[in-house]
Simulated assay, not measured.
Amino acid sequence: MAEAAVVRGQATRQRLLEAAVQLVGEAGWNAVTTRMVAERAQVAPGVVHYHFSSVTDLLIAASIGFARELAGRLGEQLAEQPDLDGGIDWLLAETAGYSGHDPASLVMLEMYLASTRIPHLRDELAALVLDLRRTLAGWLAERGCTADVEAVAALLGAVIDGLVLHHHLDPGLDVAALAGPVRAMLRREQK
Rank of each mutant, 00 (worst) to 15 (best):
L113Q: 14
A114F: 07
S115Y: 10
S115D: 06
S115M: 06
T116S: 14
R117H: 14
R117C: 15
H120F: 15
H120T: 15
H120V: 15
L121G: 04
L121W: 00
R122E: 12
R122F: 14
D123Q: 14
E124K: 05
E124D: 13
A126S: 13
A126W: 09
A127C: 09
A127T: 06
L128H: 04
L128C: 08
V129H: 08
V129Y: 07
D131S: 12
L132G: 11
R134P: 09
T135G: 11
L136P: 02
A137P: 10
W139R: 03
W139K: 03
L140A: 02
A141M: 02
A141T: 13
R143T: 02
R143L: 02
G144D: 07
A147S: 09
D148F: 08
V149E: 10
E150D: 15
E150A: 14
V152E: 01
V152G: 01
A153G: 06
A153H: 00
A154P: 01
A154Q: 02
A154N: 07
G157H: 13
V159G: 14
V159Y: 10
V159M: 12
V159L: 14
I160Y: 05
I160S: 04
D161F: 03
D161P: 04
V164H: 04
L165C: 12
L165E: 09
L165D: 09
H167M: 12
H168M: 13
L169R: 05
